[in-house]
Write a protein that binds this DNA or RNA. Sequence first.
DNA 1: CCTTCTTAATAGATCGGTCTACATATTTTT
DNA 2: AAAAATATGTAGACCGATCTATTAAGAAGG
Lengths: 185, 185
Amino acid sequence: MGQKGTATRARILTATQELVETGGYFGAGLNRVVAVSGAPRGSLYFHFPDGKDQLVAESIRQAGQATGAAFEGLAESSTSVAEFAEGVLLHLGDRLEESGWHKGCPVATVALEMAGSSDTLQQACSEVYTSWTTALRAQLEGRRDADDLAVTILALIEGALLLAKAHRSREPLDRVTRQLATLLR
Amino acid sequence: MGQKGTATRARILTATQELVETGGYFGAGLNRVVAVSGAPRGSLYFHFPDGKDQLVAESIRQAGQATGAAFEGLAESSTSVAEFAEGVLLHLGDRLEESGWHKGCPVATVALEMAGSSDTLQQACSEVYTSWTTALRAQLEGRRDADDLAVTILALIEGALLLAKAHRSREPLDRVTRQLATLLR
DNA sequence: CCTTCTTAATAGATCGGTCTACATATTTTT
DNA sequence: AAAAATATGTAGACCGATCTATTAAGAAGG
């Protein structure tokens, strides 16, 4: 793959990621992807021959990896799991509010929309969530209920993010943050 | 409104609710609504003159009320908040699995899809979540952190349901159920 | 040269929404 | 009580826009 090809592919993926993040699977219409990325229509099917599902699946995986890396960084600068989780909620809250209540979890919307109907996308979503859970679990090493706790914290974050978007308010995030201490007591 | 009119209106709403529950806003295409409900296309805009947003908003409110009522019943037969929350998770898990991992929260998908772009739907989702939170809060009377806790429990349920759908597995629900005891210690 | 990649026209389906004609109740008038 | 007038609801063809996907031809770059 030449340099130009690689570049267009990346641009398409980034544009898709952006659109999926704010509008889910159906918010990322291919016309819009083409418009935002500046790539021509045909290139889309040259780089992603399996069509939209492949495109969205890859963009989700990429977003998952990026988010995972960001959390990794946050984890290193935290002295406890509670501090880390609070940092995550703070960061996600900032992002959500600054984007005008558009950008929540890059995976959740697609998961709810498509997990029931597309195996490709269900698998992609599942994998991203698993990787996040694993990363979280690693920080809970030594606790008896580490596995349960990791899933619970992730559920809490996802749920809080959903409620915040629904209410267009940080309140749910703040309330959940306060309760985190109890959970991790 | 005559009897027949009321009946068709109800059929349309039920069909929409069904479709929204499994496929979100975009899963409930008007063609499909018409097909499932058996109502003719014209009746749709007779009963819901403001179009799809009105239709979906009403169907969400109806689903919210129905779910709220179901939880009310579950609450009466529970001796503690923990027992109630566990019952809710169990019930939702059954529903999700029995529907082939289709029917999760009837509000969440639309909230994530549309809260950022449609005021009508954002408001409807927000109201349903508020009503559920209020109901939950009522069961926590006497606790210092009742407000925070009510939101946290709802977030936990919504998050667990999302993860369960993404993984097509009850595991997240089970893990969260186990951790609920800690949270409500 | 020849693979890699771009370009734009286009197909065919489906989308939400509108329209007019028609049927069925309900009320009003005589 | 019969007939006429009005309101209520049904029925489905139809509109332009948008959707994902395909195609054939040409440009760029190794």
